[in-house]
Design a protein around this nucleic acid. Structure first.
Lengths: 341, 341
DNA sequence: CTGTTAGCGCTTTCAG
DNA sequence: CTGAAAGCGCTAACAG
């Protein structure tokens, strides 16, 4: 339909009796163009609603002002918050964001990153999938001179700037808080030990305990595979059936903590008085749980902002492959589930 | 750095001693090219890792295979689910999705849609902001021959395909369910009366009641302005203080219902036995509430899929401005908050 | 079945 | 200060 032909530079030039290059330079306010012609051209352009053909500009400049962003799961409070921060920061610099998700599958991650590469994003923001054990698909970006910034789940197989959560500190704070609340037997539902986020949280847990002269029984550390609510429920049940059951639980995520909470409520074990509970991630839902769940906030929005900032910096300075790590501090949000009355 | 020059068609042609156009046609498997040359070229391309320059293709074809998507708030279970559905469907058709958000501000909506227009998306998917009372910015797309599809919050000031939730039916089902559960005095926390979603849910509420020969006291319908948790709390309190307080509450969203739930729990009013509660939107959190909140599911993912499907159809057939409405049926999810024991 | 040619709209040398 | 001209990589008439 319609497609009323758009005004081009050529049209303007012809109309104004000047050359295309002059028109171009005037519109972009080049040095060495008389104020007169600048005004002439700009006024004309304004009046006739000239809008440059972005595809032509992209093509010519070999830039799209577009950033690709790849996350494992979009429908996730953490990731949608990161994306939100990324979009807002990108907007400030006139970049747009192309979003896709991998459903935690390496296969999809490779496909999606290829698509982004071929759709010519100027750079890539990625949080890798759990399956990802190779960085070849990211290397393809670097090889083409397009920067990559990793966030949250990052691969060390490739040198890029990284924005990560301080999992260690977050866990440490959470456990220290439980200790200060007077809990004596603090257990930890962890994730898969070879996943960095998990191992760091475990380390934070252990160090907080030892710094306060407390012991963790090996029985008190268990490992989720799927980080699911069900696992939270099951492990809470399991821990509670031990001869010496814990009186507090630090869970690797809020979802797991919600599962645990369900078990304790069903079993009429009082939270927080009989069992203290702290999660990690500070989902919106944690506020609505009852009792409201204490949790470690990861400042997801800020992670998105930071990651975009670094990426744009890299794009502009044409630096790929710098390897620096930016650790975003967490904040413990104390709610009812861990405050003894 | 690097930027090891990429292979172009010209290179391939020269290398193979054929013309650029033949190379192009072979790669795109045009009819009327010998299988021999096709194989020759494809093998060579494969071997040397040829990847076409998308910017050049875009420029040439005046298409970007990119869709713009604009939502009020990205960090929102409903919208992130719609986006997720949209992305997955788009992927199937080799489209990518550029996402942005407006924070419910018309000003931002106009800016963002302009950006998308100028970044040359092939079409736009939009859920308008609460403030939006003009469709001029959407008209700009239509005028350029680029299709727009609206979803969820839609404007009738412009003719586009629309994918909307069956708010009426959803509300009707919710209220009918409450009636069947034996609740006699069903109140409704509604939204702003001039917002379509609100008015339709109100209509569903009213019709369900009257179809079952029940009355709604005017006192029992109240209107949120911000659709916040706090309002849910406050209105529940207010309703409960009436001389003839309701015994069930249908809330315009889950968030509002959570606020109401908080009030009743604080007041030791038993849910569901003393008060029945149903929300709308079926957030992930509703499952975790205690008692778990009954809610109307809007099939957000499916809305995203459908909207993208319609948009791509419009893009491919080059049809802008068709005005048809696709209503997605809701499903009531019954949980503890509305099942009397 | 293949090659020649023109050109998409813009930026950017290179000359004046 | 301005113009002429080349060319980015690709596709698509048109002509064999």
């Amino acid at each position: 339909m319609s497609d009323r032909k758009r005004l081009t530079l050529k049209d303007i030039a012809k109309e104004l009796g000047i050359s295309v290059s002059t028109a171009s330079r005037a519109l972009n306010s080049y040095p060495g163009i008389s104020d007169e012609t600048i005004k002439l051209v700009k006024d004309f352009a304004e009046k006739h609603n000239y809008v440059p053909n972005t595809m032509a500009v992209n093509f010519r400049k070999n830039k799209t002002m577009t950033i690709g962003m790849l996350v494992p799961e979009l429908v996730h409070y953490f990731f949608s918050s990161v994306i939100s921060g990324a979009i807002n920061e990108a907007k400030k610099h006139n970049y747009s964001i192309l979003v896709s998700q991998t459903d935690e599958l390496l296969k999809n991650e490779i496909m999606a990153s290829r698509t982004m590469l071929s759709s010519s994003v100027d750079g890539l923001l990625i949080s890798i999938s759990n399956q990802t054990d190779s960085a070849d698909h990211l290397l393809e970006f670097i090889e083409e001179g397009r920067p990559v910034v990793q966030f949250d789940k990052v691969s060390d197989l490739i040198s890029t700037p990284k924005v990560i959560v301080d999992d260690f500190q977050g866990a440490y704070d959470a456990v220290e808080h439980l200790i200060r609340q007077g809990y004596k037997k603090i257990a930890h539902i962890n994730g898969l030990p070879y996943v960095k986020n998990s191992s760091e949280r475990l380390r934070g847990y252990q160090e907080a305990l030892s710094d306060h002269g407390m012991q963790s029984s090996p029985d008190w550390v268990v490992h989720c595979e799927e980080i699911s609510e069900q696992e939270g429920f099951d492990f809470a049940k399991h821990l509670n059936s031990l001869p010496n059951p814990p009186d507090a639980l630090f869970c690797i995520t809020d979802l797991v903590a919600m599962g645990a909470m369900k078990f304790y409520k069903q079993s009429k074990i009082k939270i927080p008085n009989q069992i203290g509970l702290v999660g990690f991630s500070n989902w919106d839902m944690s506020n609505f749980a009852s009792p409201a769940l204490s949790s470690v906030d990861q400042h997801a929005f800020q992670i998105g902002e930071k990651a975009v900032g670094l990426l744009i910096e890299a794009i502009k300075s044409n630096q790929v492959g710098i390897d620096d790590v930016h650790v975003i501090k967490t904040s413990l949000v104390v709610r009812e589930s861990s405050e003894k009355q």
